[in-house]
Write a protein that binds this DNA or RNA. Structure first.
Lengths: 146, 146
DNA sequence: TGTTGACAGTTAGAGTTCTAACGGTTAGCT
DNA sequence: AGCTAACCGTTAGAACTCTAACTGTCAACA
């Protein structure tokens, strides 16, 4: 059986999304990270002191998912979660130096993968694709903080 | 905090994929199904007697995931898995009448959601988007049977 | 016929994700 | 000050997903 016939536009988009994730998996596996962990770590390196709800929104997941994910990272000493004076409700999350070091290069690797995925298109086509996607997403539901 | 700045093309695609999934969730929740279950059931209704590996490929998941998913559906009497004479290795999977009835309308509901998502684009723009995506996916790794 | 490689499905263990429920904190209003 | 609503993170339980390992079946070849 060959690859099944994928004909709908949204099917194609999901396939692209899958391919992107696949492309990142060799990178993360070498470091004993999951894709989600690497993404979260990368975000925390760029946004030190983010609260968990921020991460839930960025990843379009739930508070429970983030809590669980960070629990695993914290257990490995890759992040730290602390409340700060003045706000005992929210925990500020930081990548540790070990975490930052482990995830260094992930963004670069993913950008390279993205470039490979888009390589069949020239600059004009890429701009067109981007504009169309922006038109679509302008009308999409915003990821709320669930 | 408002919606984070999503600027990359692939970020936008992932957002569209997320929105599509979100759109289907009210429908499946009413029937006490997960999105994955509804998708698998729908596939099996259209492809009676498919083997599990087929489903793994269609969904770009693993044999283990399919095994687990179908176990849940079988427990609820929504699918049946049987080997057929002449091939004791592969299990042929069928949606039961109850399963078929429960998932009836899912494809229609999803098509309507897709239409809503694409509604900001006119016919010409849709054709352009589709062509660009086809160009990209023509070079993508094929989902193998993992 | 016998052997080998490919194929199929399952299990174990771990991670991710969900909903619902919960307890705690903060902000805004009266 | 007191109340209420919103916000935050966690837990429980279940489902989905992965890899690795395993057992069993089938196909091809010598």
């Amino acid at each position: 059986m060959d690859t099944p016939e994928l004909t709908s536009t949204l099917d194609l988009m999901r396939w692209v999304g899958w391919a992107q994730r696949k492309a990142g998996e060799d990178w993360v596996r070498e470091r004993d990270l999951s894709f989600e962990q690497a993404f979260a770590l990368g975000y925390l390196v760029r946004n030190p002191g983010a609260i968990q709800r921020d991460l839930a929104q960025i990843t379009r997941t739930s508070a429970a998912s983030v809590s669980s994910l960070l629990q695993g990272l914290e257990r490995r000493g890759l992040v730290e979660r602390r409340t700060e004076r003045g706000d005992e409700r929210s925990k500020r999350v930081h990548a540790t130096p070990a975490g930052a070091e482990l995830v260094a290069g992930f963004d670069t690797a993913m950008a390279a993968s993205d470039e490979t995925i888009l390589s069949p298109l020239d600059e004009s086509e890429r701009a067109t694709l981007h504009a169309l996607l922006q038109k679509i997403t302008a009308e999409l539901p915003r990821p709320t903080r669930s």
